[in-house]
């Protein structure tokens, strides 16, 4: 085997060879374009600078922090702080103004509604539906029927502390008792009172239902919360049973299921997750959906 020489010219193509020979075949030398090669060298140089300026190599008890003092966590915190400051300016005192003040100031209200809409999509829509359309067990917020009250302050309290939220000791906490499951009412009594609830709601009761017994049981067991006429009580979150709006359904089976073992719907508390300005914005946004006072 002869040792081919570097720089030898291939007689057929007239091109130089690399000097590599495999089984008698020589590799032609096709060098990289100059501009490419120099860009490559420049990148290597750049990376050396980068190592020095930014956090890079691991050391014995930490890492080389780099001369610029950069950290991705520091950067994101600074960015968020500055965004919050800018927002506070733009929101023209949303933080210090009361809910009523904001509602009466068109400029502040516009900002609050825009912020509220975004926050609603991220946090509330999975339960209450887009635009507050609601779902079974999760109340519609876009109507004018309220479980817990529709003044700005009541609504803000609901959002801040949640409803039956395990994580908040100021949460709204009335529980409807499990009349059937805990043996307070017998099976036929549950059926009777369920039919009475249908009567209250202007719906047909089942044929042969014992309505007199139902009415009796209702005033003994249910009127404390739902009111003698079933119109509900917002201070207890007890729904109005006479309107056509049902959280869990209006057929006898659904009503009986509630009386047997009510779900006592849970809404999480938002105090720890959302800042006060966002909660204010959400309150105004929700009110703009439904119509409150």
């Amino acid at each position: 085997m002869s040792a081919p020489k570097h720089g030898e010219i291939d007689p057929i193509s007239g091109q130089g060879t690399t000097g590599h020979e495999w089984d008698g075949i020589k590799e032609l030398n096709t060098p990289l374009p100059r501009w490419w090669l120099w860009t490559f060298y420049a990148c290597i140089l750049w990376s050396v600078g980068y190592w020095i300026v930014y956090p890079s190599f691991p050391l014995i008890s930490g890492f080389a922090p780099g001369f610029a003092g950069y950290s991705s966590r520091g950067a994101v915190m600074a960015e968020i702080d500055s965004v919050r400051a800018r927002r506070a300016d733009a929101a023209a005192g949303l933080a210090s103004a009361s809910l009523t003040q904001i509602r009466n100031d068109p400029k502040m209200l516009e900002i609050a509604l825009a912020q509220g809409k975004t926050a609603f999509g991220d946090n509330c829509a999975p339960c209450h539906g887009a635009g507050g359309a609601g779902a079974k067990g999760f109340p519609v917020l876009a109507d004018d029927d309220w479980l817990w009250g529709n003044s700005l302050d009541e609504m803000a309290a609901t959002i801040t502390h949640g409803i039956r939220a395990a994580t908040d000791d100021q949460t709204r906490s009335t529980m409807m008792p499990a009349f059937g499951k805990d043996g307070l009412l017998k099976r036929d009594e549950v059926a009777a009172v369920a039919n009475h609830v249908r009567v209250l709601g202007q719906l047909e009761p089942e044929k042969g239902a014992n309505l007199a017994l139902g009415a009796n049981l209702f005033s003994e067991n249910c009127a404390v919360c739902h009111g003698a006429e079933g119109k509900g009580d917002r201070s207890l979150g007890a729904p109005n049973l006479t309107d056509a709006i049902w959280l869990y359904g209006s057929d006898v089976a659904a009503i009986s299921a509630t009386i047997h073992n009510p779900r006592n719907g849970v809404m999480p508390a938002w105090r720890d997750r959302l800042d006060p300005v966002t909660i204010k914005s959400l309150t105004l946004y929700v009110q703009s959906l439904g119509g409150g006072r």
Binding site: P126, C127, A135, K136, G137, A166, G265, V266, P268
Partner: peptide
């Protein structure tokens, strides 16, 4: 964690489209 209720998670696992 605790962003939604247990009932929501159950309903959502059963049929996500019932809620979203």
């Amino acid at each position: 964690g605790e962003k939604y209720s247990d009932d929501w998670h159950l309903a959502h696992l059963n049929e996500p489209r019932a809620l979203v």
